[in-house]
Design a protein around this nucleic acid. Structure first.
Lengths: 191, 191
DNA sequence: GTCTGCATGTAACTGGTTACATGATTAT
DNA sequence: ATAATCATGTAACCAGTTACATGCAGAC
């Protein structure tokens, strides 16, 4: 997939402008699918060319006009078909893992700092997600789309929690290696 | 970053051909950074144009010649600099989360099947990673690059474990919603 | 005779990023 | 004054995917 189906999903939930969509990509949807505003506008145009979305221009006073997009029937059909298709291969691309693996070819202290920054980022995410989870006081009673939103949120919490735990492990590992360091020139990489 | 530094990292560990690198992207490195063979060759060419890698052509009998790549001094410098730079923003793109969020616009049964497939995939990864971890019998005594490889592996285990747990939660949630289903026409999405 | 592994690439395309561009309103 | 928010986009570029292309060796 690409950003297309994330936009289709959002518009299926409620109509919106390119601006509103790109703000969502910075916030809620952005937690599992990121996009810049430029790409959002480009994709909306493409989706419109394909007949999957429609828009109405809404004039405003003291503001630029806005285009409020809605799903077309064809768009609704495409979204339904896409949901039924199996998901593509999971492609992980984690720069931090590559950096940790390469740490001994550079400055380990800088890598520790980078891992700490990542840890704080995910700790912040985790706190935010747990705040959102308060809106679901009785998870066992959820149904339909509200349940689905809750399950996605649980994914964010599970991932952020795992990321924080892993970062802590990496920091502890790299720092304890630092204190036990040997004089330079002594390669301990295979000890 | 991009695939460039993953290749530089691998070549810093040991020289290799494009073919060997692309096989690694299917296996070890591929667990945290994926790439096709076409992209590997393209990037090696670019890296060579930039003077970051060098190669020697090795003729073989009954096989095509191969190009064995090594890091140049400039490549080693670039890798060192890159390790010291902070990592770019973490960009998550998870198709499955979008699909779960969109489930009520399509066929929930198909989504359950997709989640089950993802669960099996990560359970397999987890088993493989735990097998690799056997090569590190005494983690507390590790140092330098071997410690770094172990920490990256721990990241894979932590992530795969979290992914399996989350998939199980999603499957249980979607299946229990199914058994408690109401007659069609009754929208329960905000109950 | 078919498939897998070794070994290399080119070409066309799609998806996504970065830089540039405009302009009013509201809050500090 | 300055920054943030609302609102839209174009242009150039870079990264990555898919399809196409070649050819030998060895195993089944």
């Amino acid at each position: 997939m690409s950003i297309e189906h994330a936009i289709l999903t959002s518009l299926a939930e409620r109509p919106g402008t390119g601006y509103e969509l790109s703000r969502q990509f910075d916030r809620s949807i952005g937690h599992f699918w990121s996009a810049t505003h430029q790409q959002t506008y480009k994709t909306l145009k493409k989706l419109h060319d394909q007949g999957l979305v429609e828009f109405q221009t809404v004039p405003q006073d003291g503001r630029p006009d806005k285009k409020v997009y809605t799903l077309s029937e064809a768009g609704r059909r495409e979204l339904r078909d896409w949901v039924g298709r199996p998901a593509g291969a999971w492609r992980l691309r984690d720069e931090l893992s590559v950096k940790i693996r390469a740490a001994s070819f550079g400055d380990v202290e800088a890598v520790i700092a980078t891992v700490k920054a990542r840890r704080e980022l995910f700790a912040d995410y985790l706190a935010a997600y747990e705040g959102y989870a308060d809106e679901f006081p009785d998870p066992a009673s959820l149904h339909g789309s509200k349940l689905h939103r809750y399950l996605v949120l649980r994914g964010g919490i599970t991932l952020a929690d795992a990321m924080v735990a892993w970062c802590d492990e990496v920091i502890a590992g790299l720092e304890s290696d630092r204190v036990s360091e040997q004089p330079p020139g002594h390669d301990r990489s295979d000890e």
